[in-house]
Design a protein around this nucleic acid. Sequence first.
DNA 1: CGTTATATGTAGGCAGCCGACATGTGGATC
DNA 2: GATCCACATGTCGGCTGCCTACATATAACG
Lengths: 112, 112
Amino acid sequence: MKSDALRGHLDALLLAVLDGGQLHGYAIIEALQLRSGGVLDLPTGTVYPALRRLETAGLVVSEWSTVGGRQRRTYRLTKAGQRSLVAERTAWREFTTVIDGVLGGGPWPAQA
Amino acid sequence: MKSDALRGHLDALLLAVLDGGQLHGYAIIEALQLRSGGVLDLPTGTVYPALRRLETAGLVVSEWSTVGGRQRRTYRLTKAGQRSLVAERTAWREFTTVIDGVLGGGPWPAQA
DNA sequence: CGTTATATGTAGGCAGCCGACATGTGGATC
DNA sequence: GATCCACATGTCGGCTGCCTACATATAACG
C-alpha cells in the first residue's frame, strides 16, 4: 500500500486503537500491526509526532510511567478525543461512499 | 470533507471518470461533481496538473480540439491507464478493508 | 459593455508523513 | 563481560502532492 493513501486518516487510526484502552506509543504501533493483519507498519517518526499533535489538540492525554526499568508514555482518549473519533468514523464512511461511487460505477451510475 | 483525505486517491478518480469515455478537463471536474453528489468540487489547480502527470506517466493521452470557438484538451485512457485503473481499484479495496478493520472494531475485533 | 460560464494553465506555499538518526534499558547469547 | 536484539521514545530534514491565487481567452447574456 502506498503510504500517501494514509494521509489525513492517521489521526482516526490512532484514536481508534486508543478507544480500546490506554496504550503507550510502541504498543500502539504493535496494535495497528495486529489489527491490520500486518499490513500497517508505521514508523516511529510517523506515530510519535502524531501523538504529540493529538495531545496538543486535546484529543489525548499522556502520562509517564516506568515498567521494568523502561520509560513509557501512556496515552488515553479525552472526552474531546472520543467525540473526535465519532466524527472521524462518520467522515470516513462518507469519504469511502463518495470514492466508491466514483470508482465503482461502470460506464455511468445514473445521475442524481 | 477535508481535502487531505484525497491524497493518493486522486489519480484513481481521474482514471475512473475517463473509463466512461474521453473527456476534457473541465468536463472531468463536472463529472466528478455529478458522480459524487456534489461533494467533490476539485479546483482546476488540482485537476489540470494531475492530468498532465497522468499523461507523462503514459496512463492517458490528450488531443486538442476546438468546440464553439473554445479550445479543449480531451483526454482518454491508454491501455496502461486501464490496467492502472484496475490496480487502483484493487488497492482502494485493500486500503478500505484495512482502515475499516482498525476503525470498525469496537474494543477489539479478535486477532488473527 | 460588464458579468458569468466555459476552458486551460502556472507558481508558490503548506502540511503531513517518512527516513535516518540519536539515545537508553533489559535480557539473552556467546 | 561483550554483543546483540527487543523494547521504548524522540527529533530533524525532506519529499510529495494538493490547494490558493492568479493569469488568460472566448462566448453568451443582460
